[in-house]
Write a protein that binds this DNA or RNA. Sequence first.
DNA 1: TGTACATCAGTGAACGCGCGTTCACTGATGTAC
DNA 2: TGTACATCAGTGAACGCGCGTTCACTGATGTAC
Lengths: 229, 229
Amino acid sequence: MDSVHIALQMSVTTRNSVPTAPPAARSTYRHGDLRRALLDAGIELARQGGPDAVVLREATRRAGVAPNAAYRHFANRQDLLAAVRAAAVAAVAQAMEAEMAGVPTGGTPTEQAHARVRAVGAGYMRFAHAETGLFRTAFGGQFSVEQDPDPAMGGLTGLNPFEHLSAALDDLVKAGALPAERRPGAEYLAWSTVHGMALLSIDGPLRGTPGDMQQLLGQRLLDMVERGL
Amino acid sequence: MDSVHIALQMSVTTRNSVPTAPPAARSTYRHGDLRRALLDAGIELARQGGPDAVVLREATRRAGVAPNAAYRHFANRQDLLAAVRAAAVAAVAQAMEAEMAGVPTGGTPTEQAHARVRAVGAGYMRFAHAETGLFRTAFGGQFSVEQDPDPAMGGLTGLNPFEHLSAALDDLVKAGALPAERRPGAEYLAWSTVHGMALLSIDGPLRGTPGDMQQLLGQRLLDMVERGL
DNA sequence: TGTACATCAGTGAACGCGCGTTCACTGATGTAC
DNA sequence: TGTACATCAGTGAACGCGCGTTCACTGATGTAC
């Protein structure tokens, strides 16, 4: 979980950013980096309340700026939300990367490949649990991630979550652990599975279930996918 | 698809209802069955626009009644929405029942049991596709269906969707097609899978995909579950 | 190096919106005698 | 069978809300000469 959080911080703060101006009681007339400040505020809102909580006026309030100032940097509310969404998707990608970084390097290529697929899925579910609001922002409403990939949605490796999954499945084929004729469309089968469990854990009947219980169910789910694919 | 639609109509109109008063230009001061009219209007709104479209004022408008008249029959907007949700969940149950009714009666108990599980899953996904707005209302936001079952959420058999799934899995065990030690929690694995695909088809990357393609993917998904459980 | 000026980031005030909900009411219904 | 009355379903008007967005503006910045 902490790795998830750290990954997120990195995506939010470290990436391509001029150092942010002091957030409280700006003394200068110009803000310095209002776009970044609004985006950060939007991300924080999304984190706490999901996409619907990304409210233009609240973001400007937090940035200490008049409501309409936002229109210098975003075309409208949708535009801000899209930027927040991209950051949220990128954070998912980083959660996957963090999970993959923990995969032991030993073992046969087949074992490695399986471990990577599992890491991708586990990262996805773990993120949903640890950063519910952002997960909802990324994948809760309408979304598409696969074609015309937006670089802003990539993690540190530049790959977005869908691309991570695809790559892992390709490896599975290369390692001979997945028959090539079953490869096409397999992303959607695997993704469905993990996506469904994430949502059941967040919104559905698994909401109250303790974390380690969910962890366990998640593992069984991944077993099922591994066996069933 | 048509079976889904018919099932829905039944849940909406036929069940436990006094015949609805003529919807246009009421002449009497009293409405006759305003509660039912508001519920029907709410269901129609949900069907077209999901849960957020269930707007109190719009429902009263459609019923030809002053906005505050709704408060004679529902405590508030939430209360109306909950009633709509129950109807939507019941409609899902009926979609499953319609699908199960199509299962051929021949075959071994094992084949039968497998076919029932598949029918439950297929009904769920088919409903999501055919009645997107209602599906979102039933299972799009926060929901729980399993404990303290609300009879309003049952289909014609009285079972709600979760109970249908549970029963089908129990049968699988009885038929010897699922080891008993794997039974606990299996609902959540199966449900996750199908739930995820439903949402990916509605909101996600599979949105544009033609129906028969989705049908095919759905079948592959069910294959995977069958093999993996 | 100094000054005039264009640029454009942020301001202040205001708008229209539709919503959920509350108030004191009115008029139809059905029940008690 | 007829009348008085309690009940309560639906009315009409109004409220406060926070939102997104537009307008004409002001004041700091950096560039051209």
